[in-house]
């Protein structure tokens, strides 16, 4: 499988503490990289560096290294769902989705968006202002984009920061299945989670432990 991401010599120091030092890894298509580690071990910081919005990590990150589109920040090929899920509370789930798609330059039929919201269990809430939703439902607004049936090379990697927090059992299982399905289709997933994932394509990278 083609290489999707190469990270070389990542180094992060925060508040007089080395979170990780000289960390190097690759991610290929179809692979799930599961970052584990205790709270405060730098998982979120690492993810933020991978997508190119953190200035506290030294080192080199290259997305799609062997392809002509190789750049530092190929944002449009990645879904990044952060700890703060970028759900604007004054807007409905539908409007939030439309904005996320516009930022990514993706145009899909509106019915597809409705279906995705339906899949994550927001049927009937599509037009409700997001501040009326529960924390778990707000999370689902952000996660709904993962259920869009996009062409495989439109979005090639997911970078997910604790995607399973605040979800109920059913939604957790559904998302796990969706992640594995995406990887089977050739996509790459880099995620942090305190839940385990059962799939032969999962690779675990443990951070922390005072390296």
């Amino acid at each position: 499988m083609a290489q999707v991401l190469s990270a070389v010599g990542l180094d992060c120091e925060r508040d007089d503490r080395h979170l990780f030092r000289d960390l190097s890894f690759d991610v290929s298509g179809g692979e799930i990289l599961h970052l584990t580690g205790p709270n405060g071990s730098g998982k979120t910081t690492l993810l933020r560096r991978l997508v190119g919005i953190s200035s506290v990590v030294e080192g080199v990150v290259t997305w799609f290294p062997n392809s002509p589109e190789s750049t530092g920040e190929p944002c449009e090929k990645i879904w990044y769902i952060a700890h703060r899920p970028a759900v604007t509370l004054l807007q409905s789930p539908l409007e939030n989705m439309a904005y996320a798609l516009a930022l990514h330059g993706i145009r899909v039929a509106e019915s597809v968006v409705w279906d995705a919201l339906d899949t994550v269990g927001l049927r009937g809430f599509e037009d409700v202002p997001s501040h009326q939703l529960s924390a778990g439902q707000q999370r689902r607004v952000a996660l709904a984009r993962l259920y869009l049936p996009l062409e495989p090379d439109r979005v090639r990697a997911w970078v997910l920061d604790e995607p399973l927090t605040a979800l109920d059992v059913e939604a957790t299982e559904r998302l796990k299945a969706r992640i594995i399905e995406f990887a089977r289709a050739g996509g790459s997933v880099i995620m942090t989670s305190h839940h385990g994932l059962d799939s032969e394509t999962v690779r675990t990278l443990a951070l922390g432990g005072g390296s």
């Binding site: 970028a86 759900v87 930022l103």
Partner: peptide
């Protein structure tokens, strides 16, 4: 900034 949309804007295709 507070809800995280700003991060997404800086990562946008636009």
């Amino acid at each position: 900034y507070e809800d995280g949309s700003l991060e997404q804007m800086l990562l946008a295709a636009l």
